[in-house]
Design a protein around this nucleic acid. Sequence first.
DNA 1: AATCAGACTTACAGCGCTGTAAATTTTTCC
DNA 2: GGAAAAATTTACAGCGCTGTAAGTCTGATT
Lengths: 329, 329
Amino acid sequence: MEDVAKLAGVSMKSVSNVIHNYTHVSVGMRTRVQQAIDELGYRPNVLGRRLVTGRTGMLTLAFSDVSLPYFSELARVVSSEAGRRGYRLLLEQTDGTLEGERAVVSSSESGLVDGVIFQPSIMSTIEIAQHRQDDPLVLLGEGAAPLSVDHVMIDNTRAAEDATSHLISSGRRRIGFVGQEDIKQSATSSQRLIGYQQALERAGIRVDSSLLMASHAISSQDAAVAVSRALDRGVKFDGLVCRDDLAAIGALRALQERGLSVPGDVAVIGWDNIAMAACTYPSLSTVAPDTKQLAVVALDMLEERIAGYAGLGRHRLVDYALVLRESAP
Amino acid sequence: MEDVAKLAGVSMKSVSNVIHNYTHVSVGMRTRVQQAIDELGYRPNVLGRRLVTGRTGMLTLAFSDVSLPYFSELARVVSSEAGRRGYRLLLEQTDGTLEGERAVVSSSESGLVDGVIFQPSIMSTIEIAQHRQDDPLVLLGEGAAPLSVDHVMIDNTRAAEDATSHLISSGRRRIGFVGQEDIKQSATSSQRLIGYQQALERAGIRVDSSLLMASHAISSQDAAVAVSRALDRGVKFDGLVCRDDLAAIGALRALQERGLSVPGDVAVIGWDNIAMAACTYPSLSTVAPDTKQLAVVALDMLEERIAGYAGLGRHRLVDYALVLRESAP
DNA sequence: AATCAGACTTACAGCGCTGTAAATTTTTCC
DNA sequence: GGAAAAATTTACAGCGCTGTAAGTCTGATT
């Protein structure tokens, strides 16, 4: 930068002004400096700027695993929306480990990013509250969030109730639930299970625990195994509410392997509305969270925090819709 | 940091030494400083460090769209491997636009990241060579790469040949190709098409252009439409080589909608071995690039560049395997 | 012509940290 | 016991940039 200033015969600050096209810069100055920049191939170094401004223009987006379609599609939406606001996105994967999640909430270094958007998998409210630094933070997802932290989610219980009621209203009576974790259930799964049970109870259908088909991990494969096992045990059902679309896709496969027809014999409803849901055969009915709105609300709140807002945690719900396709029309 | 130094009664440099646990630090010093750090809740600011070291510890991973399963799974692998080496990953999406790709190759600012891993979609060798700054860069994927830039890929042509030959050897004779772009074909698609044609020719099968089912975009939906249209036109085929697993999944759907059996009537083979490929019904045979190796090789080369290696571009091939599942056993 | 507001430009300090080289302390060796 | 070697610690400069306050210059106003 000094070289540019020298070549243009002006001060470094003027070069800076030109780069940031500050209002009060004469045309002569602008062209002269630009010429020097071009001639020297000068590229401003963001490190210096960041040190003095204290801002990095970067946000962390953290969750367990980008390769899960819901998260990769979320990453796309958040990245676009963040880009529109002038932020770049740092991707952080926790692999669903406590260690990984702690690292997100209590990084030992400061100044890495301006804020963090984090969807915890297993960390509890208390742990988050205990470990967190006072960097701007917005939580995503279903875990009950600490009072002091902003939080965005959809109403999982109600959505699960809607999905289940939809199956009930299409005449299904023996409705199973597929894909919740078998060992330590995530908050996501619990809330969806609660909604599922509420819908059944409200319809006067007895909840039957043999219809709960837990999966070892969040994956189609494990869900397929779970459904297969249930079928092996002779469990009968005519509808399946799935924890997510991956589980639903696994369920589809397990059913089709047995020659069961979907939705003829069994109606299936998924969750997340991942892109693939439209292209399975049969295509998947699913709960579609409004991820665009999710990203917008989360970034709005995060930017307010970055700007200095220091009030208590705000908790926002975003919309969802039941998208009806072939698997549960 | 100054406060910590003052409280511990030592110099700032000693605090720095403790933080980076430099070898020659006495135990007394270490505990005294650590105590001061804990007492003040001090967190070193990376901005200062970066400015003086000139290193950011971050890499950009750039491609068109994280929500495409191949890319999200690649991102996961690269992120893990980069993490192991002490780098964080900045995600950059180009949306497959020239504008977006230019921004990756010729960022107007320096110091943002230590290096870039980039899978171009449409930028040509020449454009890349013209626009690129001299930041460390490794290219991924099939486009012919500029001589001066490092590059990793699998041998697409040969893999496509293998995949096609596999169908031929299982007795298929009318083999289509699904999912290449209909307007401007990417290098990826062209190479795969070439391999497909070579395999046919070598087997003495005439290439029939009515068996080429181009897709509007890289998606299952568009591939399904392409296959449906071909079926509408009365095109007959008993095998499909798909540009990628998304196209294959679309093809599966189109075939199943018509009541065609896979692999009975038509064998289908995909590409990428995305996680979903194991859970479709029937599950997908597919070309599986060794993405782990891809990530390792790319990061090895990038780290060499970061360390100052300035030789000509190196071009490396990584392994792939034909994973045979139900759709083309 | 003197004055002055406004437009434009600059000098300078300092953001938070680490590399360097030099200073200090401790240990080792005759 | 004293010199040399090794271990530990320190002072200081400066990474590249921008905020601030203090200029300089223009044209307009009285």
